[in-house]
Amino acid sequence: MKTLLNIIWLVLSGFWLFLGYMLAALIMCILIVTIPWGIAAARIGVYALWPFGREVVEKPGAGVGALLGNIIWVLLAGWWLALEHIVTGIALCITIIGIPLGIANFKLVPVSLMPLGKEIVERR
């Protein structure tokens, strides 16, 4: 079932979300100082491409550095990526088939706002 959901997700929203995250990663990697945010954007972008069967969990040991990094991230790129998830989620919720995908988009909003201090693991 998760493979079917991932294929539908990829066609309807995953590819476009992936492109948004990769654009953010590219912009962040231009400056040496913002490379950690670029890596985080690329990691979350790959997750946004094929999310079903995996989940985002808090990384043990993430502390004040991750919090400060997330504040900078929200100002630089997080807000427009979160907006991308919200708009895509609303558009997907218009149809009955798209409702689970829209809900999945809404679940990705917190991750798009605060990617540092989180890791992606396989769901058991």
Score class of each variant (00 low, 15 high):
L81E: 05
L81P: 12
L81C: 06
L81F: 09
A82S: 09
A82K: 11
A82I: 13
L83T: 15
L83V: 15
E84H: 13
H85T: 08
H85V: 09
I86A: 14
I86W: 12
V87Y: 11
V87T: 15
T88H: 05
T88K: 10
T88G: 06
G89E: 10
I90K: 05
I90S: 07
I90R: 08
I90G: 07
I90P: 14
L92P: 11
L92H: 08
C93T: 07
I94D: 00
I94K: 00
I94N: 00
I94R: 00
I94E: 00
I94H: 01
I94Q: 01
T95S: 01
T95A: 00
T95H: 00
I96H: 00
I96W: 01
I96A: 01
I97E: 00
I97N: 02
G98M: 02
G98E: 02
I99L: 10
P100N: 06
L101A: 13
L101Y: 14
L101H: 15
L101F: 15
L101S: 09
G102L: 11
G102I: 13
G102S: 13
G102H: 11
I103G: 13
A104Q: 15
N105C: 15
N105D: 15
N105Q: 13
F106K: 06
K107H: 07
L108T: 07
V109P: 12
V109G: 07
P110N: 01
P110K: 00
P110V: 03
P110T: 05
P110Q: 01
P110C: 01
V111R: 02
V111W: 02
S112Y: 05
S112Q: 05
S112F: 04
S112R: 04
L113V: 07
L113R: 03
L113N: 05
L113I: 12
M114C: 10
M114P: 02
P115I: 02
P115K: 00
P115R: 00
L116H: 04
